[in-house]
Design a protein around this nucleic acid. Structure first.
Lengths: 137, 137
DNA sequence: CGGTATCCTCTTTGATACTG
DNA sequence: CAGTATCAAAGAGGATACCG
């Protein structure tokens, strides 16, 4: 029992190690479009076109690419209704639902603390400008 | 009261809009190195070299760049002790601490569910391979 | 409608060398 | 130790055209 060529982990995953597979899924989650797609799907299934309109600024290519990755990783399901024109619905899987909560937290934080961040940026930028040419008089 | 050229928000931030500044912070947070840096700093201040060793695979350039961004956005403080050789410590600000919790959740999820994701990938890849050449016999 | 395929650009990142 | 600067390589992403 216990072949050594089993790439699965049994309690030792560490995303801080470059070679650990958990780093791969972290890369998928730590992505702007992943955050927004999963957040959008938290409210229930959505069609391709609905998602594209909801995610302002996303291109068709990026949306398709993001959805394919999420489907492959088992976070969303893709259901095709062979009507004319075609109807394709995306939905979070059970595994994906547990992610949407985390994504929602990040997005909510961003929206809630944007002003504090913008203020910090102003302060930082003003300081940086002063250091280049300190007031000498 | 209330000049119209105030770029700050007062309750209407929406990261789904490309032009909304909250999208910018989302971009900063939705980043592999940001996740790991903030996670590392959740345990207290760390020196530059410590962070570099902790974040396996990061280059000096990327670590510096990530830390500068986080400092500018008010999530991290940078303290220089003018000794020889120099000693520089990074620590999460109060604002940053509220982020580390979220980052920790994402990283923990990645480590806990990596096996489920790897299984999903296997299934997906096998299906994709079969579709190209279905078993006809 | 919901894609795929191609080309092309622009940003991100890595590698390397040098500095207070 | 903790950076900065520079150049080259890589890859992400956008625009466009076409398909079932």
């Amino acid at each position: 029992m216990g072949t050594t060529d089993d790439l699965r982990f049994h309690g030792g995953a560490d995303a801080y190690l470059a070679a650990c597979p958990s780093r791969q899924i972290l890369d998928v989650l730590a992505n702007k479009w992943t955050m927004l797609v999963m957040g959008a799907l938290s409210g229930g299934p959505m069609r391709f076109g609905e998602l594209r309109r909801r995610l302002d600024g996303i291109t068709q290519k990026m949306l398709t690419q993001t959805l394919r990755t999420l489907e492959r990783d088992g976070l969303v399901t893709r259901t095709v209704y062979p009507t004319i024109p075609p109807r394709v619905e995306y939905a979070a899987t059970e595994l994906g639902e547990s992610v949407t909560t985390l994504m929602h937290g990040i997005r909510t934080w961003s929206e809630a603390n944007i002003n504090a961040v913008l203020d910090a940026r102003d302060t930082y930028d003003v300081r940086a400008a002063q250091e280049v040419r300190p007031v000498t008089a």
